[in-house]
């Protein structure tokens, strides 16, 4: 307050170099106004939306603000893509999930980090008849669904040779053909 008339009226802004500050009229709180690029907050201690870090090192080693790092599995038109401090990704797309959108979400398999979107995460599409408990999830890597007895294929959609009746939902049954009367 420059109107008091003492030599200590004006105080140094408690802000990083280059920033200005202002006093909030009601609360008399001092707020930094032009924080360095990419930073924000009362004391320029936070990262702008779309960035993460700990510029003042309030929670340990100081980390400059860097762009959300989510394996290209976020949309640049979205807001709030990652946690401003930890960098945890909050809006994974292309059926990915995980702290850095680094794995496929439940019910999908493949390589979340693949460069090509088509190679990323594909739906498990497990056959409901051939899968244990009609599960819709599969191995994250191979995409193998958990098959009932004598059921085969990645999606548990077929019977082993010599077996039939996938539709039973209890696994496939042996054909029991008479070897003498059958062609193979």
């Amino acid at each position: 307050d420059s109107t008091v008339g003492s030599s200590s009226d004006c105080k140094l802004c408690p802000c990083p170099e280059g920033a200005t500050c202002a006093v909030v009229p009601k609360t008399k709180e001092v707020v930094c106004t032009n924080c360095p690029t990419g930073t924000t907050g009362k004391r320029c201690e936070l990262c702008d939306d779309g960035f993460f870090g700990d510029p003042l090192g309030e929670k340990g080693r100081s980390r400059t603000c860097q762009a959300c790092s989510c394996n290209n599995n976020i949309d640049p038109n979205a807001v709030g893509n990652c946690n401003r401090e930890s960098g945890e990704c909050l809006k994974c797309i292309y059926n990915t999930a995980g702290v850095f959108c680094d794995r496929c979400k439940e019910g999908f398999y493949g390589d979340a980090r693949a460069a090509n979107v088509a190679d990323k995460c594909k739906s498990c599409s497990c056959s409901p008849y051939g899968t244990v408990d009609r599960q819709t999830t599969c191995s994250q890597v191979t995409g193998q669904c958990q098959c009932l007895p004598h059921v085969i294929n990645r999606d548990c959609g077929a019977c082993e040779p010599g077996f039939y009746n996938l539709q039973s939902g209890k696994g496939c049954e042996r054909c029991n053909c008479n070897p003498i009367g059958s062609t193979n």
Partner: peptide, 24 residues
């Protein structure tokens, strides 16, 4: 750089354009 900036002020009468910039 001590520049106490009275940069926060009530809306004067009349019409205005208001916009947001993450923290303000």
């Amino acid at each position: 750089r001590p520049t106490p900036d009275p940069n926060i002020s009530p809306l004067p009468p009349g019409s205005h354009i208001l916009f947001t910039q993450s923290g303000k």
